[in-house]
Design a binder for these strands. Structure first.
Lengths: 335, 335
DNA sequence: CTCGCATCATGCGAATTTCGCATCGCAGAC
DNA sequence: GTCTGCGATGCGAAATTCGCATGATGCGAG
């Protein structure tokens, strides 16, 4: 009924005041442009151009329409351009959503590695809690979700409602381990003990309700009747906040090995409890069923075919960590 | 490239969140609407609708475009409606342009007469000075120009530049006569004389430069060497302003017979000078070469074929005016 | 006044686009 | 599982649009 090209044509005609010249500028024949202007006049319901004299003049209706056409076209073309730019950005970039902790522990190294492999690609990481990441992913706001999951599935179930990513294809791209740590006493032994006297209540530094790491820890505690005497005096939604509390000697916290190995090496934090109390976590990357943008598909394909080592490069942790922490932990890190 | 119907479609889809239902509302098939939305998405350069779940959801790009589409469509359809209304008004009405004096003397009666003959028709009269009327006419702002012209053509030439109406078809639809009038002295004779003593300077009440009636009077004065001693102490752009001055005894003015016959009958104004000093004017209606709207063409056709009497009806002036003013003037009025 | 030039409108056949019908694919409900 | 609702798509018909050639008109030079 109304093609916006007619409006563009009309604007050019109003500027040149000559249909033939305007036709050249618009890359159509004079007859074509003449008819398009007629179509526009037919749409408007009134003559827009006074053709009696050369150069052409706009009628009153023409002037009115010209104003509106300029503004409407400007807005429409403007939104078109921004949409295309956004889309372009989206197609060339790979967007991840991940819980806050991974922005600190995992992504800094991993992004560097895949940047090197994929060449110049814009990478963006959005941090949120796990349900937030999942819904962003569901809405197509990101290409992948990367998160830490435990073998028991406590983390995926912990959100209360089913998460989309449960039914999505995924691949393991790293390891993590939560270890119960305490500041040392003067003698180098833990200030707080998990396995000393079952009747002695131990201060436990908990993750906040919304932090998915906490769901794994709570799951572990629920399975171990010998740990019921733990009571949490403090909680914190960030692992690094808990680490600071543990360093200050406020209690025992299950902290990620990747953020605490330096503390362990330097003796600022020491492990407590038996080795069974460590929680092994997978860093898993989830993708949607539908096809992704080119770069994102390329990443997925290389992750699944080439394996992780090719992308991750040399071990992420210094070897001397083996001398100060449990041998099993070191193996985890090297895997 | 972008049909605004696509935007209308998109708005309806955004409201119904269901392409099939939107298709019914838009009176197209589901497949047609589906493809139109695809066309719009192709234009925008990004998906606008998330079709994965029912009901449909707009993408971020979709929401952005929806806002702009609503506004742009509102403006475009708004201007379209006003243009159509204006045009409709224009086609159903007959628009005249005329010098100010005719709005007072001629149109009140004449409009009544043609209204009765043409049936319900919107009639509009725009008053301006003669050049203004002519340019309004040239721009198509009015259908007809009605003006007073003298036999010598002084009025048509008086504008300084050639007027379009000079080369237009026209028809005489009335008469007018300018008569030199003065307030009477106590004895009933004119207070100011045009023909008494050539050496006696007489106060002359002139029309302003822009008033076309003045051009006819000036032309007459220039032809009559015996009138050179006239000097204008006052001038006024409106004939009625001059009449008031004349009634106050300020001098002699060439005034339209139609506005002064009551003054003459009642002896408030008396004629001065010899009968040759009257100026006969034609009320002429001018039409453009191009075709006019239906109603306007109908008026022209009836004016040219049926003559004026049929439209003008009985004589416009009371018969007793014959007893108090020159017989010749009465004939003019009765004609 | 006539001619030539510039300009816009229009008839016509070809190319392109759009439409509706029928069908397919997919997802959710029962 | 089947059934149902919904959107996408292949295909041929219909409508629209386009370019070419030509006609009509106005303006200025000779």
């Amino acid at each position: 009924m109304l093609d916006i090209r007619w409006l563009e044509d009309f604007i050019v005609v109003a500027e040149t005041r000559n249909i033939t010249k305007a036709a050249e500028l618009r890359n159509v024949t004079q007859s074509g442009l003449s008819r398009r202007i007629q179509s526009l006049e037919n749409w408007a319901g009134a003559p827009l151009i006074d053709r009696r004299h050369a150069p052409l003049e706009l009628t009153e209706a023409g002037h009115k329409l010209l104003d509106v056409a300029n503004e409407a076209l400007g807005r429409l073309n403007g939104i078109r351009r921004t949409i295309r730019e956004d889309q372009n950005e989206r197609l060339r970039s790979i967007r991840f959503a991940a819980p806050h902790i991974l922005s600190v522990t995992f992504f800094p190294r991993w992004l560097l590695a895949i940047q090197a492999k994929l060449g110049s690609t814009r990478l963006s990481v959005t941090s949120d809690n796990l349900p937030g990441c999942a819904s962003l992913f569901e809405d197509g706001g990101v290409d992948f979700v990367v998160c830490l999951v435990d073998a028991n599935g406590a983390i995926l179930r912990g959100a209360g409602r089913p998460l989309v990513i449960e039914r999505c294809a995924s691949i393991s791209i790293g390891k993590e381990r939560l270890i119960p740590l305490s500041a040392p006493a003067a003698d180098g032994k833990p200030l707080h003990w998990l396995d000393l006297n079952p009747r002695l209540s131990t201060s436990y530094l908990a993750y906040s309700r919304e932090c998915s790491l906490g769901w794994a820890v709570e799951d572990l505690i629920a399975r171990r009747p010998d740990l019921v005497q733990l009571h949490s005096l403090y909680d914190n939604s960030l692992a690094d906040g808990l680490r600071t509390m543990a360093l200050a000697g406020l209690g025992v916290a299950w902290l990620p090995l990747t953020t605490t190995h330096n503390d362990i090496i330097r003796g600022k934090l020491v492990r407590t409890g038996d080795p069974q109390l460590a929680i092994d976590l997978d860093v898993r990357l989830y993708r949607p069923a539908q096809r992704l943008a080119k770069k994102a598909e390329e990443l997925w394909s290389r992750l699944t075919t080439e394996g992780l080592g090719a992308l991750l490069g040399p071990a992420a942790f210094p070897p001397d960590i083996a001398t100060t922490i449990h041998a099993e932990d070191v193996q985890t890190l090297r895997r």
